[in-house]
Amino acid sequence: MSARQAWALVRDTVREAGARWVFWGFYGLSTALILFFLFLLRIDVIEGARATVTLFGETSPRAVPVERLVRGFQGAVAAFLYVAGMGLAIFASAGLMAAVVEPGRIEWLLSKPLPRTRLLLWRFAGNVLLVCVNVSYLVVGVWLILGSKTGIWDKSFLVAALTTTFMFVVLLSVVTLAVVLTGSAVLATMVAFALMVVSPLLAQHRLMVKLLDSEFWRDVWRFLYYVLPKVFEVGKINMDLLRGRPVESWMPVWSSALFAAVVLTLALVLFARRSY
């Protein structure tokens, strides 16, 4: 019975997403990128390991190593996905999470015979599923196209789907907490965006610790750095993995995961106690 309810809640989430233009825009953007690589961009491999690129009838004057070319394109797609794709995903998902607690709907949902935590958790999961499928669609699509055009099948690019989905889950936890507290999709989006914007600044904690002259503010800075999700640094790890560079520290990943776990638990606990 709980599996049936879970499936119904996920299906409801997907159905609602289908009725919203942001999700179509999200998938449309991925499709546009895939079509770009499929039709507009021509890659001619010459002299074995070098290639030229043709776009809108213009051919690049110099041939570059194919491998570098492919890595370059993959890097651009991964970075675009991690920043713009993530922003769009958050924007779209905040609306979807807030819809659950909309007056007139939440009373109805809560009257059904299932625990509140499950209600929220399965909407969360449905949301992650939507984003995960889209991100994988883009990454695998681009990977297949570049691979078939150049013969280079670099699996490390596929990790980009994983890192992006991971950071999305972290930020969606924050969105969920904000929605439970305020019911506002706009506010939830703003909070998540603020975390994205502030993370490259916080990541400079070594430099800031030198610059700040009060021990108190240094502690504040360090505290914020260690507690808040490390969007910027996980993004850097994403690129390191892509380029085959060694990863300096996994701390940004696990501390962000810990943050997400705590925030999501808090959201569920508060949701279970609220009156609507």
Binding site: E16, G18, A19, P103, G104, W108
Partner: peptide
């Protein structure tokens, strides 16, 4: 419920 808003999609 009173004043319900069932999901319109």
């Amino acid at each position: 419920p009173e004043n319900h808003r069932l999901p319109s999609y």
